[in-house]
Design a protein around this nucleic acid. Structure first.
Length: 110
DNA sequence: CTTATGACTACCC
DNA sequence: AGGGTAGCCATAA
């Protein structure tokens, strides 16, 4: 049951879990941290599986421009936005305001 | 078993 | 500078 999906997914989940409160990161940042810049899609796909993982704050993961691309997967509502705003992250038009300020890069912060 | 797609990003022309 | 294609890995059919 441990390595069911793959180590890649496990690493992605771990990094996302390490995202501090009130901070957001991007798929590419995680992928790059794992050493696979082009694997950003896999990171997003990992998030798709993260739906059953409450420990994985996927709402803190957005695309490189701070756009809540995965918001549709949160129930098709503003749930993702509400979660971010609840943590102090301002969101406007499905985009993270001051994304550069809230951006948390694992390979940079870690 | 093979094909296609998917919450992305970067490079090439 | 802008648009299009390729790359990555896994899951689903």
């Amino acid at each position: 049951m441990a390595k069911d999906r793959s180590d890649f997914f496990q690493r992605v989940y771990e990094v996302v879990r390490l995202v501090p409160y009130g901070r957001v990161t991007s798929y590419g940042a995680i992928a790059r941290y794992l050493g696979a810049t082009r694997s950003a899609r896999v990171v997003g796909w990992a998030m798709n599986s993260s739906h059953g993982m409450e420990d994985v704050p996927a709402h803190r993961v957005v695309n490189r421009v701070g756009l809540l691309t995965g918001k549709h997967h949160f129930g098709g509502t503003t749930l993702m936005q509400q979660l971010l705003e609840n943590e102090g992250v301002a969101v406007n038009e499905n985009k993270v305001v001051n994304f550069d300020e809230h951006f948390w890069d694992p390979s940079r912060e870690l």
